[in-house]
Design a protein around this nucleic acid. Sequence first.
DNA 1: GCCAACGTTGGC
DNA 2: GCCAACGTTGGC
Length: 156
Amino acid sequence: MPYWLMKSEPDEFSVTDLEKRETGRWDGVRNYQARNHLRAMQPDDLFLFYHSSCPIPGVAGIGRIVRGAYPDPTATDPQSPYFDPKTAGSGRNPWSAVDVAHVETFAQVLPLTALKAEPALAELALVQRGSRLSVMPVGEREWAQILRMARSSQAI
DNA sequence: GCCAACGTTGGC
DNA sequence: GCCAACGTTGGC
């Protein structure tokens, strides 16, 4: 089963927000590469919930896909901050959303700095120079490594 | 707030 | 189809 990582600004939508609501819709992705990853997701796939553009960027918890990709309604909703006029005018919606459920909130965020410092994670797309991709696959070995790191940082 | 890196747009 | 200009992402 594939694993994923998805970025969100915690001011907008954090792992604790997801925890409170239990489920949510992951929408607003407006990059084709990221969208293609969304479309590859299947129910029960797990993902790392990454907090970006915040005091401590890093992996904050785990979520699970509960519904595979479907047309992103925010693209055609003029009230949405993710409204895409081009999509709305075209009658065809190229953007995708998935539904997600909360699995776990880490006691502490596993910071990006720790991920970058770990040689076993050198291949991770997240730590590549200049990577801005907001939805990306995570290899099984990397997944296991990141969970180990998250667990051990909680034990401190 | 700065800036590097990247994606997108639009003139030609 | 090229490529400069612009906008966005996201760490620092």
